[in-house]
């Protein structure tokens, strides 16, 4: 039943599988704070309006993002493509509530993220989002299983049930035999799959991947991208930042950024 692991909570709830019970309560489908007006069309997952991000570098001000306006609907697979310095990483961090825009608005499921306090942002990151980083970001002293369980801190289930879920996610990633290995004994591809399992732990609606293949060879990178495509095909929204055209080609929508502005936004 690997399908249930790759699909978000909305679907798991309608087709109960092993992940469904664990998912209850972990993901709010009505928005970050549950405030969605009834009777109107559901808000897009992400709505950006005139978003800007400036920061000081020495005594000059640099615009990392300038007037970015776009919507991302539930279930999309979006690549943010651009060269280094184009603003794609900054945009991804803003979307992940790790960075704060200096202009414009960011609505997450209709909620203005500017009004979320630190705890609410943490909750949104924990339950609504899964992160995959270029350098994997696994704790070097923890096993693969423990690294996956880092996402489980606020889950109400028993420790045993949580370990079972982490093990099942690792199994889906083909890492069943590696659960007790530390990152140092895993290949790059294996480490990124541990990170993927961790990102999926709380059945997030949104996967944010920052150059997920950046430190992997072509074949391994392709395998990771195929997994992200599978995750997306099961209904989760995937947003990926990459400088690489081939990697971006896995997405069904490519947004090209240049100097912090949207240069093109193409759906296939």
């Amino acid at each position: 039943m690997a399908q249930d692991v790759f699909s978000p909570a909305t679907e798991a709830a309608s087709a109960p599988g092993p992940g469904a019970g664990l998912a209850s309560g972990a993901t709010g489908v009505t928005g970050v704070t549950g405030a969605v007006a009834r009777g109107t069309a559901p808000a897009p997952l992400i709505r950006l309006r005139a978003l800007g991000k400036r920061f000081r570098q020495g005594d000059r001000e640099v615009a990392a993002l300038e007037d970015v306006s776009l919507d991302v609907a539930e279930g999309e697979f979006v690549a943010l493509q651009g060269t280094s310095g184009s603003g794609k990483s900054t945009l991804l961090h803003v979307l992940g509530l790790l960075d704060r825009p200096t202009a414009g608005t960011y609505l997450l499921r209709g909620d203005d993220t500017a009004r979320l306090d630190d705890d609410a942002k943490s909750a949104a990151r924990n339950r609504l989002m899964g992160f995959v980083f270029q350098s994997f970001h696994l704790l070097p002293y923890a096993t693969a299983l423990e690294n996956v369980l880092l996402a489980s801190i606020y889950r109400p289930e028993s420790a045993r049930a949580l370990r079972e879920r982490a093990r099942s996610l690792l199994r889906d990633m083909g890492l069943e035999e590696r659960a007790t290995f530390r990152p140092g004994r895993l290949s790059g591809g294996q480490q990124q799959r541990v990170a993927l399992a961790r990102a999926l732990f709380n059945d997030p609606a949104l996967i944010l991947a920052d150059e997920p293949t950046g430190q992997l060879d072509a074949t391994t990178g392709r395998r990771i991208m195929e997994m992200l495509a599978t995750i997306n095909a099961a209904g989760r929204t995937v947003i990926l930042a990459t400088h690489d055209r081939d990697t971006a080609a896995f997405a069904r929508r490519t947004i090209v950024l240049r100097d912090g502005r949207v240069e093109s936004d193409v759906r296939r």
């Binding site: 992940g96 790790l98 630190d118 705890d119 943490s122 909750a123 949104a124 990151r125 924990n126 339950r127 989002m129 992160f131 970001h137 704790l139 880092l150 996402a151 801190i153 606020y154 961790r198 709380n202």
Partner: peptide, 16 residues
């Protein structure tokens, strides 16, 4: 710091 940053990114509250 990397460990703390990672945990925060994964949604750990600062109180945790």
């Amino acid at each position: 710091r990397p460990e703390i940053g990672l945990k925060r990114a994964l949604g750990w509250r600062s109180s945790s």
